[in-house]
Design a protein around this nucleic acid. Sequence first.
DNA 1: TATTGACTTGTCAAATATTGGCAAATATAA
DNA 2: TTATATTTGCCAATATTTGACAAGTCAATA
Lengths: 96, 96
Amino acid sequence: MESQFGDKIRTLRELQNLYLRQVAPLLEMDTAQLSKIEKGLRQLKREQLPILAKILNADKTELETLWLADQLMQLVKDEPTADEALKSVSKQIRKK
Amino acid sequence: MESQFGDKIRTLRELQNLYLRQVAPLLEMDTAQLSKIEKGLRQLKREQLPILAKILNADKTELETLWLADQLMQLVKDEPTADEALKSVSKQIRKK
DNA sequence: TATTGACTTGTCAAATATTGGCAAATATAA
DNA sequence: TTATATTTGCCAATATTTGACAAGTCAATA
């Protein structure tokens, strides 16, 4: 599982029987880019998330969560203190 | 509290009675940069962490955790799904 | 086995973002 | 005022990410 977000949007796209070439232009990119995004080799821009959610008829919040989780994972994946750091941030967030 | 990491290394530096101008060159930077790092306006490079820990006579793991937490915070701070995303990553990490 | 359509991969220049370094500004103390 | 420590603003240099295109694979099928 390379990218949870990528896997998800690929699955959703296939469920809707859409081709890359149909979706990509709606995001103003070419199929190559979207292909890479689905494989986790590139990041979708944050502001494109709602657009994609609409295209795929998906829950925006769920996609946002997966997208953010991917970003976080990238940051912590080789960090020995990942667990503690994540916990610490959760705690800080909850305080707000 | 702008930056947990910055606050911490500033405190440690002051405890050791060191000036920016004494520490900065050991990290091959000027005082302005280090000042910004302590205030959370710039990031210390990951690979400089162990060097700084040694200079400040600090626990390397603790600094790593604070440093990583700062990076994570930057990513999630305006995200409505921050909490869920953080939890999800924690779970994935634990599986490894 | 040739063609077609969908997707993937590699490359590289262009666009963005981050950093380094300097000079000037501020602050505090003597 | 002078001296020392730190901060701030600016912008060039560097690094990272992206966009665009071409060529590639793969599977279905004529």
